[in-house]
Design a protein around this nucleic acid. Sequence first.
DNA 1: TTGCTATATGAATCAATATTCAATAATACA
DNA 2: TGTATTATTGAATATTGATTCATATAGCAA
Lengths: 195, 195
Amino acid sequence: MRKREGNKEKDILDAAVKVFADSGYHRSKVTSIAEAAGVATGSVYLYYPNKESILLKIFDRLWTDFTHTLQETVKRSDYDPVQKLDLVIDHLFNIFVANPALAVVFVNEQQYLINNKKGNIGKHYENFLDLAEEIIHEGVKKKIFNPDVDVKLYRHFITGGIRSVLFYWAQSTPSSSLDRVRLNVKLFLRNGLLL
Amino acid sequence: MRKREGNKEKDILDAAVKVFADSGYHRSKVTSIAEAAGVATGSVYLYYPNKESILLKIFDRLWTDFTHTLQETVKRSDYDPVQKLDLVIDHLFNIFVANPALAVVFVNEQQYLINNKKGNIGKHYENFLDLAEEIIHEGVKKKIFNPDVDVKLYRHFITGGIRSVLFYWAQSTPSSSLDRVRLNVKLFLRNGLLL
DNA sequence: TTGCTATATGAATCAATATTCAATAATACA
DNA sequence: TGTATTATTGAATATTGATTCATATAGCAA
């Protein structure tokens, strides 16, 4: 029996993130991914049944991680809702600062996967939003947040806004201050524009 | 000479909006667009040089309109910055309430066009953002808005958030209360989450 | 009515690229 | 060392769908 050389499955996944970030999923050729991963074209199909499954794997891992963290956060009784939102935002930002290309892929392809009900990304996302909603409800209940906001709308607004500033950041000079972005997002959420 | 029957150019554009909204640009076949427009496949190429130019035309018209309105709004001295933002939001929402499919296409394909520097959509968008920035700057100057916000970030956050709630709305039961969405967006922008 | 030209058609062509698979290489174990 | 087994390769194949083009049709003028 022959042993597998290195970890091609991971190499391919990492390479795919880079290639997808550069060219977008649809424009990315499987051959380019293979090349970037340092394997032959055919080898990709040894580890993934098709091109789409690579993208799905990337998102599945990401959302599983997000949801897990959010779940832990919602539970905590030692934090108030504002602190909980901060915690969640910190986690998201930490992931993406460690891997800007991942941020780009996330921003660009998320909608496509949801629209076309690919894999269980939609489920993951709904799950995540529901958990986020819990925090907001808690805030309203504790009279910290404005009860007039439509919570379902707000959670969409937040995620859309975050996606957008992440994209802006990821496109700009490498690793410019993500902390500035992070701080501002927290500010937007709490206080909006007014003094 | 033979006269053109009806307005195929417009029929094709309108059909394309529907088809793109349903399947996304990349999955949409030119043949499907032709079918939806009630013309032959080849006729599409009588009016548009290729598939992409149809998408570009849709966006070009949209952004030209947006920018024009925003330009008019920025000028007005009879409104304060909060009212100006309201006016802009009203305009965006009015366009999309009249054509939900257009909202879907806008949300889904905008990023792709910008990423790949297609047509002059990026220019249009930058232009729009710059104008929006003027309103925010005015607000800060007049001590109505919080001077701590990073204006460039905020304009991205706003547009991303709006895009996201529009999408949510466009996907939900046809023409559910867009006014509720509109009202909430204004609320988010001004006050954020806190009481 | 006839010929002319612009418009319209849709099957055939072409290009791009995802996927397959026959051939080759590397390792384990006898 | 030789052989079996699995991993790897990348050129060939298959598929999909954008674009073309030879043909048909409709209106207009003479």
